[in-house]
Design a protein around this nucleic acid. Sequence first.
DNA 1: AGTCCACAGGAAGGGCAGGCGA
DNA 2: TCGCCTGCCCTTCCTGTGGACT
Length: 438
Amino acid sequence: MVFKPTNDLDTYISHENTCETGVVRSNIFMNYIQNGPIIKNKDSLVSSFVPDEIIHRDEEIAQISSVLAPSLRGYQPNNLFIYGTVGTGKTITMKFILSELIRTANQNGGGVKPIYINCKMKRVADTEYRLIAQLLKEMGVYVPDTGISTNILYKRFFEEIEASKDSIFIIVLDEIDALFKKIGDEFLYNLTRSSSELENTKISIVGITNDLSFYDRLDVRVKSSLGEEEIVFKPYNALQLRDILLGRCITGFSAMPEGGVINKVAAMAAHEHGDARRALDLLRVAAEIAERFNDTMIEERHVDMAQDKLDLDKTVETVRSQPRHSQAVLYAMIKLHEEGKNKNSNRVQVQGNGVHWADKRLLTGDVYDRYKSICNAHKMPTLTQRRVSDLIGELDMLGIINARVISKGRYGRTRQITLALSDSVLRKTTNLLKERFV
DNA sequence: AGTCCACAGGAAGGGCAGGCGA
DNA sequence: TCGCCTGCCCTTCCTGTGGACT
């Protein structure tokens, strides 16, 4: 059988790693070498890549630079908060500015020490202890993962800071809202209050967040000790996204995409709140798919397939990495969803138009009952409803389900749950969970 | 207006694994 | 080795909620 490229993602995936005979060939990489890749420099096609020039962010760069510039003269910059939705270039702009700041500081004798930490990284800075430990690690100080009290850790941290005489530390906390959600704002208070007592060095904090209401939720005493400045990054529009993509195409591809590809990717990403990260992911995956099809150019159909693949990969991987009980809860929802669908389709056949098409909304109590029966069938201990309620909340936060609290009057308050998965993603997820719970 | 239901969700604490320091 | 510290996962207890029902 000769495999012809199609627009069907399942066909693509199922043939992704096979050959005509199903026998593994010894020259499996030959096609890649012979046909020549579309991708010239993959690094420049990922969202974390910091290019030499940041476009469409001149105003923001000027604003942030003016806030941080006093550090070059030995003065403490104001604390700064940067807001903006996902993929608006906050992180990349900040990293660009930090590299420029270091370069300029080095030319002028040093003294500025930026530390960048992503607070969303699991087991890196998702607790107060880990945050301070990570700050110390960034300063070259070994810290054990556990075993030391947080107070002692703070003490060590400020001792290290003080030892760096006449320096200005700029601590950039990316996704600071994630840390705030976990541990509150005490760490901000501790950092700002203690830093005001330092004699030889100074600390400034730059918080980056997607949450525009973040500052409003801080405690009053934290707000007063922060005394912050704020900058909001607006979403990119389709034209700006197109410019960004064109820039990355030049550095990333040896063959430019087909005519409408860039516009299509830009339009799709602009539709998703001007998300440049999504635009780059789409373009990169489309290029990878085109290469695997041995095509010489990225076409619009590759972009459509990339869109499906990104959604699929993200969700299935998320489900795969969940704890077993979370998977059991999700499996309970999928089973109830399937049964509801079948039941209603039968009823439609029997009763004609008298019954509405599948009511796919599930309730917490039903999900919990089914979850318990799945646990019993697999000899797993059952978690309490309280805990399962939290797991449902986590699945909601991950975007796998939509859960909304409703009141059914005297029949109580509950969560109304719907699956937030497309058909192809649901199929893959169901297969994955069936393997775990057969 | 008061009652009731089926939870939601906050707070507190238990048990566990693992590291540090005396 | 032991006590103390941590994070993590979990349970128990409790109060709050909001719309239907009486």
